[in-house]
Design a protein around this nucleic acid. Sequence first.
DNA 1: TCACTCAGAATCGTGTAGGAAATTTCCTGT
DNA 2: ACAGGAAATTTCCTACACGATTCTGAGTGA
Lengths: 235, 235
Amino acid sequence: MSSAAPGATIGRLPRRQMLADDVHEAIKALIMDHVLEPGARVSIDGLARQLGVSPTPVREALARLESAELVVKEPLRGYRTSPLLSREQLDDLYEFRLLIEPWAAARAAEHADAEGRERLEAEMRSCTTPASDTYDSYKALAAHDTRFHVLVAELAGSAQVRRAFERTHCHLHIFRLHYDRGLGEQTLSEHRRITRAVLDRDPVAAEAAMRAHLEAACYERLRPVSEDAGGPTQG
Amino acid sequence: MSSAAPGATIGRLPRRQMLADDVHEAIKALIMDHVLEPGARVSIDGLARQLGVSPTPVREALARLESAELVVKEPLRGYRTSPLLSREQLDDLYEFRLLIEPWAAARAAEHADAEGRERLEAEMRSCTTPASDTYDSYKALAAHDTRFHVLVAELAGSAQVRRAFERTHCHLHIFRLHYDRGLGEQTLSEHRRITRAVLDRDPVAAEAAMRAHLEAACYERLRPVSEDAGGPTQG
DNA sequence: TCACTCAGAATCGTGTAGGAAATTTCCTGT
DNA sequence: ACAGGAAATTTCCTACACGATTCTGAGTGA
């Protein structure tokens, strides 16, 4: 159906956000920012007191976070934040990303409409080179990285792929592992290359660029301390 | 005793350990068995009364079901069961399955250990040909189908792929769409073919068998009633 | 007569407070 | 040093108050 019919009923605007949603986002931020350290106990009443609410919305938020596997629940013992990803789990995560994201990039190049391509360009325009080495600067760049990859998945036109990608919460896990490296000019140039391929409607190039991007990130981040070889700089 | 016919009364729950988990499973079963019809409103207090518990564990269960996208929440208006999958969504679901499951079958054939292969054989031994046309018979076969595909995903050795597959809840959605067809001797023979390829450590054959299995299921189930008209306007 | 509007009430979602059961911790006795 | 037990903490559930939404039905105007 044609979208953008004049005067058409756009979906009802988001109602007043509920407390449980705010609590949910707050806890997610606490986990991402290491305020709640990996494996730490998350007391329902403690969080409720700290946030100034009653335990019920905290319980609801934690139930959702448990479905997202950001916290784990031990019956009658409470919640704990999920531990940091092990080396094997990170490998596994990138293997999964390599399975779905290059595919998504190719599909995005194949059938992204004008509005989608404009959104992609806007996202690339909005990102600047990392200005400083502050925590907030890294966090802003990580947010761009998240939006970029979600957008590519969305442009692929498969809701299942987009949701499967989002539900990995891969950027949260990676940022939690090491928020102080891995994002820089190389990342941005690789994003630009993917964007160019999508805008050129070149599925093969888009898939290859995304694959190279993920492999570079995987290679660089999985071996953070070994500086034996300069990367192939395939990006 | 565990009758699961559609329209069955909601029974009281034998409290084992945690009420919220039982409520969660109970609601999931109610959705799958069409006791809660697609799009129907799910009243928190109503469910609490029918299950004989207080609203709090029901809210916790619904919060988790919302993360799994089995129910949708409209703020200040309550929960509704997710609508049935549209033709496009079902297409999308099978596209996603075709992306990850053949890959998983190949990996399972590559590196499934002895214990994993024994579990696969046991699952195939445990399933018999459909004995009757009763609802319970179909449901049992659907349960085997679920276990089989989850097991293949698990044998692939990638926790991300397994979770991504499980989180689609594809068997629940498909069963909800039409629980009265699509599973039969053909399904079992295709499962046997996949099993054989995995046991023979033949990744190429396993991948091809899984792909053929999904394409057959997709083709057969996507065109159950509109095989004559071809659906010119309506999806 | 019919359609529309608006007030009132019932209904339901949302958050709070409190109590029962279980686990953990710490202390004591041997 | 180790086993046993009681207090403290916490989880989990229930019961209740408040607010928003929706339904009902009477009233008004065309």
